[in-house]
Design a protein around this nucleic acid. Structure first.
Ligand SMILES: [Mn+2]
Ligand SMILES: [Mn+2]
Ligand SMILES: [Zn+2]
Ligand SMILES: [Zn+2]
Lengths: 139, 139
DNA sequence: ACGATATTGCAACAAAGTTGCAGAACAAAG
DNA sequence: CTTTGTTCTGCAACTTTGTTGCAATATCGT
């Protein structure tokens, strides 16, 4: 089974292959950075209805194909999940990097988030880490 | 100089004391958790115009009285800065905790964010950490 | 108490996100 | 390849969220 192609990935998540899903998934695969709804709209500019983009992202989220990236502005960004993620179980314990210069948000899968001890009472379930700075291209 | 009272804090930041500023700052002081624009609207319900709340939050941000808290939803939340923060220089290197049960977002000032090493090329300027789990009240 | 200045509320607008529904596209079966 | 049940898309209408200009009002130093 070819899970490496766009169609393969969609079929692997039991999703029917449609133009918008193919296009949006392709975008994530080729850009390899986190994308906001707006980013996608800008690139596909009118190819699909705004609502379709919202619904496609929602579907990808539910199927575990993408995950949201925490941020300090009010913009929700989505990034491709790696193989470890599935419909129920997300494997999102890696660092996210936001470049102050080019604005790109990247998943740094190589670096895992250090454990942390909180004062009594708090029970930790998941930790998210967002690093700001300059990326290799902009440094 | 009494910087411990609401008025004292406002005057300390060279802000004129108005009803909305007093009320909103009071909210932050008494709740001691991060508040969204919507949270504030809900509590003050019609006392102030929506625009005034936006502008008040913006002013507090600029004066270094509050800071934004990173999140995974699209909601911007604000939390009181501690004394270390000032108009120019923010001192925001602490952990933020989001309770899955009650939804409260809290600044954990006691725990500072551990340093991290990124692969070559990346230059780190600031690190944000958001921990999800259950808080003491809900645990 | 007065007057310069800063702040507020209103209205109008722009952007972002949601929902219901009819028609089109898809996948499976024949 | 065609049929057929089901899913997906686009449209329209709407809600929510955030922004801007401006006149009226409140604040603060004198
Ligand atoms: Mn990621
Ligand atoms: Mn904080
Ligand atoms: Zn960059
Ligand atoms: Zn709680």
């Amino acid at each position: 089974m070819s899970a490496v192609t766009t169609e393969g990935i969609l079929r692997g998540s039991r999703l029917s292959v449609t133009a918008s899903r193919r296009r949006i998934l392709d975008l994530f695969l080729e850009k390899d950075i986190a994308l906001s709804h707006q980013d996608i709209e800008a690139v596909t500019s009118g190819s699909f209805d705004r609502v379709t983009v919202y619904r496609t992202l929602q579907t990808f989220l539910e199927k575990g194909l993408i995950h949201t990236v925490p941020s300090s502005d009010n913009v929700v960004r989505y990034a491709l999940c790696k193989d470890a993620c599935a419909e129920g179980h997300h494997h999102d314990d890696h660092v996210h990097f936001v470049c102050d210069s080019c604005g790109a948000t990247t998943c740094i899968d190589e670096v895992s988030i250090p454990p942390i001890r909180l004062p009594g009472g708090y029970r930790v379930r998941q930790i998210g880490m967002v690093v700001n700075g300059t990326c290799g291209r902009c440094g």
